[in-house]
Computed example of a mutant assay.
Amino acid sequence: MVDLHVIEEFLNTVDERTFSRHGESHVAGEHLTSPGALSEWLAARDLPTAGAEPQPADLAATVALRTALREVLLGELDATTALTDYQLRLVPDPTRGLRIAARSGRPWLDAIVETVAQSAARGEWQRVKLCAAPDCHWAFYDTSRSGRGRWCSMDVCGNRHKTRTYRERHRRTG
Rank of each mutant, 00 (worst) to 15 (best):
R45F: 07
S119P: 13
H5Q: 14
D15E: 14
R66P: 07
A28S: 12
A68K: 10
D78Q: 14
G147A: 04
P35N: 01
L59Y: 00
A28L: 11
A139S: 02
P134G: 08
A82E: 12
S119Q: 12
A68N: 08
A50G: 14
D78N: 07
V6N: 06
V128I: 12
T81Q: 12
F19C: 03
A44Y: 12
W151M: 04
E124Q: 11
H31P: 05
I100L: 10
G97E: 10
R148N: 12
C157W: 02
P56W: 04
Q87I: 14
A101F: 04
Y86N: 05
A61E: 11
L73F: 00
P107H: 08
L77E: 13
R106W: 01
R171A: 15
G51E: 13
L4H: 06
A101N: 01
V14G: 10
R171Q: 11
I112W: 04
L77I: 03
S146H: 03
E168D: 11
F10M: 09
V6S: 07
T163P: 06
R122G: 10
A133L: 00
E168A: 10
R96G: 14
G29D: 04
L74G: 05
R145A: 09
A111M: 01
D93G: 08
E24A: 13
P56A: 10
S146R: 07
N159S: 11
W41V: 00
Q126K: 11
N12R: 00
T18M: 06
L59F: 01
V27W: 06
E124H: 13
V2Q: 15
T62A: 12
F10K: 13
E124G: 05
A120Q: 06
A28G: 12
L90A: 09
R99C: 13
G36S: 13
R103Y: 05
I112M: 15
I7T: 00
T84I: 11
W108G: 02
V14S: 06
P107E: 13
T115V: 03
R17I: 08
A121I: 00
S119F: 10
C136I: 03
G97W: 05
R164I: 01
D110A: 00
Q87G: 15
A28H: 09
Q118D: 10
D110E: 02
G105W: 03
L38K: 15
S119C: 15
D142E: 00
L65R: 09
D93N: 12
C131Y: 01
P35H: 04
E9A: 15
Y141T: 13
R172L: 10
V156Y: 06
M154G: 03
G158F: 01
T13F: 11
R164F: 06
